[in-house]
Structure formats: structure tokens, C-alpha cells
Nucleic acid binder design. Structure first.
Length: 800
RNA sequence: GCGGAUGUGGUGGAAUUGGUAGACACGCAGGACUUAGAAUCCUGUGCCUAAUAAGCGUGGGGGUUCAAAUCCCUCCAUCCGCACCA
């Protein structure tokens, strides 16, 4: 009998699979679109984190195939953007070549996973045939007013020399390099994702996604209900508009604060205070986001100007402080120190008046700190005695009647900064014409291809390197034919990945982004598997794009990913496995030693797929031993199979029941341990008598999604010449899987005292009689107060 | 500060959802085979014990229940997300 030679087997089946189609396009079957988050190919190759996700999705895909589905399981390359470009710059290789090489490398490594991909659907976001449609979507958005230009202070990363979206600069750090970001005023293209805020929030509810991810998105969208209120500036024809969630505290608003970037700051400042304010504003522009946020003490300056509280009529000093954010709400706030911690702190520090307007019990007292809770309105004129919650609406209505404000919904979500001053991205397909203004590139001229250039490094000027290529930049205006210039900014990393999942299904379509018929038939994605790091950015953008494409009639659904699964990280020595931490294990070093099937099964065995897991070098040895044992079990018994005994049959049905349940509940680690259990059991059984063919076949069929190469080989050894993946998933008979005799537990006062073998369908009286007998000695002299019988489980005697 | 996850033997983890805690595997110990090793197989392995007796045991404390890793309250630790969002 031959030994388990994984090298030979895996090479053989990789080759066989290239020739045979184990997942034929049988459209009579229900479809299952199982999608992996496609990688951005870098020179580093695949790591264990990729493996964990890709093995998991492959098990789901193959399981669905054997369950009678037509499976769509494509793979592609997210190759535009900073990672690819930075890699190219560091290694002084043109990004085009770097990406080409990396894709080749990645593809070779991906094939080593042994995953069942539809390589005929492969796509690459840097392929002009693909980004033609990325540009087309942008043009469609532009035509509908969803893309607009704006000069604004933006997150600027000094190291990457690039503008970052708020999402990419969260916490004041560049998501790519971890460097500090500062604010810089630049002209940018924006996408009005805020128009979709409510829909993006509402539709989260129906998604089968991890609750955590849904919460993160909801928080990011950040809907809050409140009011907009206008405050007249004294002595000037200006108004300060604020947003507040607590209009009920308006009588307690004793001063106002503007963000340093607020456009009114310069207009209203008193001459006597101008120098000081200017200095403060200048200072906060240069201070980095990190420092600004890390600052504990509040700072600020008085503008010398006053506003009037529209309800109380009180004079309010207008201050400038960086604790007010320019890009949330209106960039200005009314300050209610009595009922807001931050305003309280500011008022204390600068000696501003503090007024109580909400009281938990209606009484007035000296406030030691801001009172944030609910209560009744006090010091509030006609509103005195109104409950604070009812007061929110009452005050908002009162203001609306007098044209002083209105109830409103505010979102934390901001419009998406969509342009990048980089070479390696999709050119934004717009043309600037002196006569016609901004004109989109006509459909027939798409794609606007990225010119091949020698110098692609970023500049310090805040302009894309494309701006230096005169022959590319200068182009006739599509409308008037006059001299015009191309937009030189490119799109962000996320552009391609926001819609790529549509294109897989119609990669060859030259006339449409996707045919309506195909979109209808194959979409949306049923299962999306990938890391939790995309919880907000990629997944929010993809949802936004999908809703837009729905609105313009390209697709008939509003949500792209019905079900989402986030796999956990793989740690080693208690830390995330990574090259930089020096604790990484590369698949390249594991594969020659143990093979693909062992690594696949080990990664699944390591722990629940949604949790982080600890890699151990000895752990994989155990899985390798198991596959060897399983190999011996099947290969040794194949030639001498016997008819099934009742015992074999029972084990087979139980095995199908147990393992199928575990797989379908995504408890893949216990599914693997199930294979181990049954392999151990059957090995023991085989020592007595030869096993039957069907039991061995069942084991091999169920193993196939997990360890496809060895399963195919053993299937062949069992006498078949067709792929094991043509087999339907085995079914079990509940009656045949059930035990006749069970071990019944006997407890006294909930403590285990005996085990007894009884018939599975024993009735209560008989069970209690058997239990009494089993613990007779212990019951002597005791009074039984209660007898509890749980069928198929236990009897518990409660004694005094 | 807010939100979420996790906490079980020496280790990774299991417990089909309130019913035998520790499946499966790693490690360790002993044994078989072998000149020896590798591989393989067998036995044991939560703690305390001479014990297959009793007791203790799922981060700590309290509670509900005949019965709690599982439900409730409270505290602690670790990790993740958000964070001056008015």
C-alpha cells in the first residue's frame, strides 16, 4: 500500500482540475455567489490571513456545489492605489510592471490554496477594459450632480504626499503609512455620499452581517435628531447657524463658539480682537490633527462680537475654539454650559456665565457640574415646567413658527473626497474648458487611459504627476472643440473595489457595465468573506455605489452583499502575525513540508473562524498525522471492503448528521475534529472487520470541501473515475442515526452519582426505577422530595 | 468616556444553546515495535488524592433553578472599534 504522498497527489489534481470543469455552468441549479475580498497584489505575496479567508470561502463554495448549487466563486486584482504605487516607488519598478509581476506571483500562490475559482471571470481593476466602467460610473454621477468640486481643508499626509479621505485619516493618522496628517486647502472632487446617508442607514437592518459591522457603519453615518437655530450677530447683518440635539436647553445658551475655520470668524471679529483671533486661527491650521485631538485643555479666544439668544434675549459672547469641529453640523455651536460637559469646562476656564435650565425635580440649585440628564425646563420663560424631552419638540416648533430655526436631522457622514494627487489610479474623466466649464469625457472616448510615463512619483505641489504631461493634459473640449485641459487627479483606491463584484459576471461585455439579464440572474452576492478591516470604508462605498446603480437602473437590488463573514486574525506568540513583527509563518515554508490539504485543514481546525486564533508549529503536525491516518484508513480498506453491518450503517448516518450540522453552522473547527473522531472510530472498527464501501465513500465525499486533493485521490482509489465533486452531499436518516441504548445520568441534588444504560425511549417510571436501582445505596435513609426526568438525558433525585 | 468581543486544564479549543464540563488536537508521562532513531500503535493525563472514595473546579463575588460555562446582577482583566460629533 502506498504512503500518503501529498506532493504527488496535489500536483496531480491541480493539473486534472485545469482540464476538467468541476463546477460547470449548470444554470438550471440555484446560484450561489461566494465572493472573496480580492487582494491588492503586492510583492509580499499571500500571507496566512489571506489563506484563512480564502480557505473558508472555498469550503463554503465547494459545499454549496455538492449541495446542488451552481457556484460563482471568482477572483481578481485590486491593483490601483497606494499600496501598489508605494511598492513600485520603493523598488524603483514602474507600477505597471510591478503590478503585472505581483499578479503573476499572487496567482501562482492562489493556485496553491487549491481553491475552486472561476478563472474565466478573472478581472483586474487596472485593465482599461475594467476602468472604462469605473470612469463611466463617475461620469454618470457627475451628470446627476453627485460629483462636485470643492476647495477645502483636507487631510494631507506628508509622507505619502497625498490627500486622504476622512475615513483614511481617522484619528489623525494616515491609514497607509501611520504618519501624522495635517490640514491643507486644496481643490478636490467630492462624491455626495451624504445624499444616501438615510438609505445607507435604513438598509443595514435587513443585512445578514455581523452586528458589529452594522453598528460600526451606523455609528459612522451618525444620524442625530435635533434643530438648526439662527442667532443674530449684534450690529451686523449676519446670522450664526448652529445645530443642536438639545433645543430644550436653548434658554441656557449663554455664549457661542465658532470653529477656527468657520467663514464668519473673519467677518464678525471686532477690530480690537482681530490680531489675537487671526493668530489663533493660523495656529490651529498648522497644528496636526493628532495634537489637536490629544489636547486636553480647552483653548479659545473671544472675538469681541456678540450674538443674541433668540428666546431669552441674552447677550452672548462669540468665541473661537478648536473644540468645535468645522466639518460637523454647521461648524458653530450654541454653548449651554449648564448641560454640556465641554461647554461647562470652557465656561469655567474663561469665566463665562452658567445657567441652569433643566432640573431633575424642578428645583433650582448651584450646578457643580453639567447636568446631562432629563428633567423639567426651568429659567425658560413660558416653557418652564415642560419636560425636557417634550421641550425639544416644543422649542423647535416655536422657533419654526418665528422663522428662527427648525427641527432637523444631522449626519456625521461627510461627502467622500474622491480625488488623489497620484499617478497610479483611474484618471478622472473630466475636461476643463475655458468656455464650457467642466465637461465629462463622452462615452465613446472612454476609457481615458493612464499614460505610460517614466516619472510617476508624487509631487509636493498637491498636483498629480499627470499634470506634468502636456501632450496628455491638453485636449480639445468635447463640446466646443476649443483648447481645454484634462483633469489630472486620479481616483482613490476604493473606486474599483466599489463595484468589481458586478463585473465578474460579465467581464467580456464591451458595451455595458453588466447586462441587465446577468445582473438579474446572478446577483447580489450571497456570501462575502473577508477581513473586518473593511467594515466601514470598502463596504460602505460598495453599498453607496450599488444604490446609485440601482437608481440609474443598472441593477435591480439595493444591497450588494446579502451575507458577510469576517474571519479572525491569525496570531503567533500572542501577536498578529506579520512580517514587521517578525513572527510570521509563510505558506511558502509550510507547503513543501505538509502540503496544501494539511494547511487548509489546520487553518480550519485552529479555532472558530470568526475569532482570532493562535498559530502553533506543533498543531499543524497533528493535522498532518490525522491526514496520514485517514489515508491509511481508506487506502488499506478499499481493496477489502465488505457489506455494511448495522454498526457501520449507524456510524455512517451519525457521521453525516454530525459533520453536516457543524459545517452548516460554520463551526468548521469542530467539523474538522468530527473528521478526526470518525476516522479514529472507523480505524478502530477496521481492526476487527473490513469496512463497507459506502461508509468509506461518505467520509471521502464530506472531506472533499476541506481537503480536496486527498479526497479526489482517495475517491479514485475507491474505484471511481469521475471527480468526487460530482457527488451529491450525502444524506442521513434520522432514525438510522439514533441510538437504541443511551447512557442515562443519575443525579442526586444535581450531582452526578451514576451512569446507567437504558433504552432510548424509556418512559418516566421505568427510568426512575432504573435510576433508583443505580443509586440505591445512596438513597438509603433519604427522603426524596422530587424526581426529575429529562428524556434521553437524566434523572435527578432531590433529597432532604 | 461610549460601544462591542473575549475570559474554560500545561496549550489551542469543545460542550447542537439550561441537563455527564474538558470532545478533538497539541504537549507531557509510561509502554509496544526497533541495534538505535524516525514513523506507527497502545495506555494515562483538570485539581486535590493511596484511591475507579469524598471534595473542589469554566476570570472574582452574589443571585435564579431540581440542575448554570450557559440566564440575571455586580466587579475585574485582555483585545477591538469610536472618540471634544454639540
Amino acid at each position: 500500500m502506498s504512503k500518503y504522498n501529498f506532493k504527488q497527489i496535489e500536483a496531480k489534481w491541480r493539473e486534472n482540475w485545469e482540464k476538467m470543469d468541476i463546477n460547470p455552468r449548470d444554470e438550471s441549479k440555484p446560484k450561489m455567489y461566494c465572493l472573496d475580498m480580492f487582494p491588492y497584489p503586492s510583492g509580499d505575496g499571500l500571507h496566512m490571513g489571506h489563506w484563512r479567508g480564502y480557505v473558508l470561502s472555498d469550503v463554503l463554495a465547494r459545499r454549496a456545489l455538492m449541495d446542488g448549487h451552481f457556484v460563482i466563486h471568482p477572483m481578481g486584482w485590486d491593483a490601483f492605489g497606494l499600496p501598489a504605487e508605494n511598492f513600485a516607488i520603493e523598488n524603483e519598478i514602474h507600477p505597471e510592471k510591478a503590478v503585472r509581476d505581483s499578479i503573476e506571483f499572487f496567482k501562482r500562490q492562489l493556485k496553491e490554496i487549491g481553491a475552486m475559482y472561476n478563472w474565466d471571470m478573472e478581472l483586474n481593476t487596472t485593465d482599461p477594459e475594467f476602468y472604462k466602467w469605473t470612469q463611466w460610473i463617475f461620469v454618470e454621477m457627475f451628470k446627476r450632480g453627485l460629483a462636485y468640486e470643492k476647495e477645502m481643508p483636507l487631510n494631507w499626509c506628508e509622507a505619502c504626499k497625498v490627500v486622504l479621505a476622512n475615513e483614511e485619516a481617522a484619528g489623525g493618522e494616515c491609514e497607509r503609512c501611520g504618519g501624522i496628517t495635517t490640514k491643507r486647502n486644496l481643490r478636490q472632487w467630492m462624491l455626495k455620499i451624504t445624499d444616501y446617508a438615510q438609505r445607507l442607514l435604513d438598509d443595514l437592518e435587513g443585512l445578514n452581517w455581523p452586528e458589529k459591522v452594522k453598528k460600526m457603519q451606523a455609528e459612522w453615518i451618525g444620524r442625530s435628531h435635533g434643530a438648526r437655530i439662527h442667532f443674530p450677530v449684534q450690529g451686523r447683518d449676519e446670522k450664526i447657524e448652529v445645530f443642536t440635539t438639545r433645543p430644550d436647553t436653548l434658554f441656557g445658551a449663554t455664549f457661542m463658539v465658532l470653529a477656527p475655520e468657520h467663514p464668519l470668524t473673519a467677518k464678525i471679529v471686532a477690530t480690537s480682537h482681530a490680531a489675537e483671533v487671526e493668530e489663533y486661527v493660523k495656529n490651529s491650521a498648522t497644528i496636526s490633527n493628532v495634537d489637536r485631538m490629544a489636547k486636553k485643555d480647552k483653548t479659545g479666544v473671544f472675538t469681541g462680537a456678540y450674538a443674541t439668544n433668540p428666546l431669552s434675549g441674552a447677550d452672548m459672547e462669540i468665541w473661537v475654539s478648536d473644540y468645535v469641529l468645522a466639518d460637523y453640523g454647521t461648524g458653530a455651536i450654541m454653548c449651554v454650559p449648564g448641560h454640556d460637559e465641554r461647554d461647562f469646562e470652557f465656561a469655567k476656564k474663561f469665566g463665562l456665565p452658567i445657567l441652569q435650565v433643566i432640573s431633575p425635580d424642578g428645583s433650582l440649585y448651584e450646578l457643580e457640574e453639567a447636568y446631562l440628564g432629563e428633567g423639567v425646563m426651568v429659567n425658560s420663560g413660558d416653557f418652564n415646567g415642560t419636560g425636557s424631552e417634550a421641550g425639544r419638540e416644543a422649542v423647535a416648533n416655536h422657533l419654526a413658527e418665528r422663522d428662527l430655526g427648525c427641527a432637523t436631522i444631522n449626519y456625521r457622514l461627510r461627502d467622500w473626497v474622491f480625488s488623489r494627487q497620484r499617478y497610479w489610479g483611474e484618471p478622472i474623466p473630466l475636461i476643463h474648458c475655458g468656455n464650457c466649464g467642466v465637461v465629462p469625457v463622452p462615452y465613446d472616448d472612454l476609457p481615458v487611459t493612464l499614460p505610460h510615463v517614466a516619472s510617476y512619483k508624487p509631487t509636493d505641489t498637491g498636483e498629480s504627476p499627470l499634470a506634468l504631461i502636456d501632450e496628455w493634459v491638453n485636449t480639445p473640449c468635447p463640446d466646443c472643440g476649443g483648447a481645454a485641459k484634462r483633469e489630472t487627479n486620479t481616483m482613490p483606491q476604493w473606486a474599483g473595489s466599489s463595484w468589481y463584484f458586478l463585473r465578474y459576471l460579465d467581464v467580456g461585455n464591451r458595451g455595458q457595465i453588466i447586462s441587465g439579464q446577468k445582473a438579474e440572474k446572478y446577483l447580489p452576492v450571497d456570501y462575502y468573506v473577508g477581513g473586518v478591516e473593511h467594515a466601514v470604508l470598502h463596504l460602505l462605498y460598495a453599498r453607496f455605489y450599488t444604490k446609485f446603480l440601482y437608481d440609474i437602473g443598472v441593477v435591480g437590488f439595493e444591497e450588494p452583499f446579502t451575507r458577510l463573514f469576517n474571519q479572525g486574525m491569525i496570531n503567533r506568540f500572542g501577536k498578529k502575525m506579520s512580517k514587521s513583527a517578525g513572527n510570521g509563518v509563510s505558506p511558502d515554508e509550510i507547503l513543501p513540508k505538509y502540503g496544501c490539504d494539511t494547511l487548509r485543514m489546520y487553518i480550519l481546525f485552529i479555532g472558530p473562524p470568526e475569532l482570532d486564533a493562535e498559530w502553533t508549529d506543533t498543531g499543524i503536525e497533528g493535522v498532518y498525522r490525522f491526514l496520514n491516518k485517514l489515508w491509511r484508513l481508506v487506502a488499506e480498506n478499499a481493496p477489502k471492503v465488505a457489506p455494511a453491518t448495522a454498526e457501520h450503517e449507524k456510524i455512517r448516518h451519525k457521521m453525516i448528521r454530525d459533520i453536516t450540522w457543524r459545517i452548516d453552522n460554520l463551526s468548521l473547527n469542530t467539523a474538522v475534529s468530527g473528521f478526526m473522531e470518525y476516522t479514529n472510530k472507523l480505524s478502530e472498527l477496521a481492526r476487527g472487520a473490513a469496512l463497507d464501501q459506502e461508509t468509506l465513500e461518505t467520509l471521502v465525499i464530506m472531506l472533499a470541501p476541506f481537503a480536496p486533493h486527498i479526497a479526489e485521490e482517495l475517491w479514485e482509489i475507491l474505484g471511481h473515475n469521475e471527480s468526487v465533486f460530482r457527488q451529491p452531499w450525502p444524506v442521513y436518516d434520522a432514525a438510522k442515526a439514533a441510538d437504541d441504548m443511551i447512557t442515562m445520568v443519575v443525579q442526586i441534588n444535581g450531582k452526578l452519582r451514576a451512569n446507567t444504560q437504558v433504552s432510548a425511549d424509556i418512559d418516566k417510571d421505568a427510568a426512575i426505577a432504573a435510576a433508583r436501582e443505580a443509586v440505591a445505596a445512596r438513597l438509603e435513609g433519604q427522603t426524596i422530595v422530587k424526581e426529575i426526568f429529562v428524556p434521553k438525558k437524566l434523572v435527578n433525585f432531590v433529597v432532604k
